[in-house]
């Protein structure tokens, strides 16, 4: 429901202000996403939800639509995260669309390899 509302607002914003600038996102590594970007923009929420259920409950890991994979590719090279500024991949678009993300209250917003390096440094 929230998603639909957000998307409605998203498109409303477009139609009302045709000259509005879409956010310039730092897409990190970029390249080919697991699906067409347009499709991902619309459906990533549902895909992640489905993936999380089979990962947590059935132990199927390394899936095509895992959050870890999103982060691994799309973390900014500058601050090594998908959050931080309104240019960062997840935060930028979610701020633009005014949809709260609570994924990263629990999940790491940084790619696996570097997150581990960081935590090793802390020891």
């Amino acid at each position: 429901m929230r998603l639909i509302l957000a998307l409605a607002l998203f498109f409303a914003a477009f139609s009302a202000h045709a000259d509005v600038t879409i956010p310039h996102l730092d897409i990190g590594q970029g390249g080919h996403c697991v699906n067409d970007p347009k499709f991902m923009r619309m459906n990533h929420g549902d895909l992640l939800k489905h993936q999380r259920t089979i990962t947590v409950h059935q132990g199927i890991r390394g899936g095509r639509y895992s959050l870890e994979r999103c982060v691994n590719c799309h973390a900014s090279k500058k601050n090594n995260s998908v959050l931080g500024t309104n240019q960062n991949f997840c935060q930028g678009c979610h701020v633009y669309a005014a949809v709260k993300i609570d994924c990263f209250e629990c999940h790491s917003s940084r790619p696996e390899s570097t997150a581990e390096l960081e935590s090793d440094k802390h020891e």
């Binding site: 132990g59 870890e68 982060v71 209250e105 629990c106 999940h107 790491s108 940084r110 790619p111 696996e112 997150a115 581990e116 960081e118 935590s119």
Partner: peptide, 23 residues
């Protein structure tokens, strides 16, 4: 509230947790 969780072990404020047998 937590920060810098391990990518393999997501965990966060306001939820209950326990040994996962290193799932």
């Amino acid at each position: 509230p937590l920060h810098d969780q391990k990518p393999d072990v997501p965990r966060g404020k306001g939820t209950v947790e326990s040994c996962t047998l290193c799932v």
